[in-house]
Amino acid sequence: MLELEFTTIEEWDEALWARIERIYHEAFQSGAKTKAILHSMLDRKLVIYTRACIMEKWLRWLLLDWRGRLRTAS
């Protein structure tokens, strides 16, 4: 069973960004926002809606292969 942990942040966390930046750019191979834009969105509290979209794309990338089929354990 897949277990996910969700974390809500209210301020930019440089250490967290360092850990997730690669995953973010892999999930958004086209259309990724710049670090400055994401930082600004968080500062203006505009990330709530965007976070849901990011999570959906990230989960799709994590769970599905390039054909849209569920990945299997190797």
Rank of each mutant, 00 (worst) to 15 (best):
W17P: 01
C53V: 14
D65K: 02
I54L: 09
L46C: 06
R67N: 12
R44S: 13
E10D: 11
L46S: 10
L46K: 14
L70Y: 13
L4C: 08
M41K: 07
R71K: 15
H39C: 03
T50C: 00
E21V: 04
A18T: 12
A73Q: 09
L70M: 15
H39A: 03
T34W: 07
R71L: 12
A27K: 00
S40A: 09
W61I: 01
E11R: 10
K35P: 02
T7Q: 12
L70V: 12
R19L: 06
R44C: 09
A32D: 00
A36Q: 15
M1Q: 04
L59N: 11
L64Q: 06
H25L: 05
K33F: 11
R69T: 10
M41G: 01
L2F: 10
R69M: 12
T72W: 07
T34L: 07
I37E: 14
A36V: 10
L59D: 14
R22Q: 11
D43M: 01
S74E: 08
W12G: 01
R67V: 03
M55C: 09
S40C: 02
R67H: 12
I37A: 09
C53Q: 15
L42D: 10
D13A: 05
L4Y: 04
W58E: 06
E21K: 06
A52H: 12
W58I: 11
F28A: 01
I20F: 02
A27N: 00
E3W: 06
A18Q: 15
E5I: 14
L64G: 11
S40R: 05
R71Y: 04
L38D: 02
E21M: 01
L62F: 13
E11V: 11
I54C: 08
K35F: 10
Y49R: 05
A27Y: 01
L4I: 10
L38F: 09
W17S: 01
M41Y: 09
Q29H: 03
R19V: 00
F6P: 03
L63T: 11
A36K: 13
I54K: 02
Y49Q: 05
D43E: 10
H39L: 04
R19D: 05
I37H: 05
R51T: 12
I48A: 07
T50Q: 08
R69S: 13
T34G: 03
H39Y: 09
S40I: 00
T34K: 08
R60D: 15
A36N: 12
T34V: 01
A73F: 13
A36W: 05
D13L: 04
K45C: 07
L59H: 14
R19S: 06
T8M: 08
D65W: 05
L62S: 12
C53Y: 15
L64K: 05
M55R: 09
A36R: 11
R51I: 01
D65R: 04
W12I: 06
R51K: 04
T7N: 10
W58A: 13
L46M: 15
L63I: 08
L63Y: 04
Y24H: 00
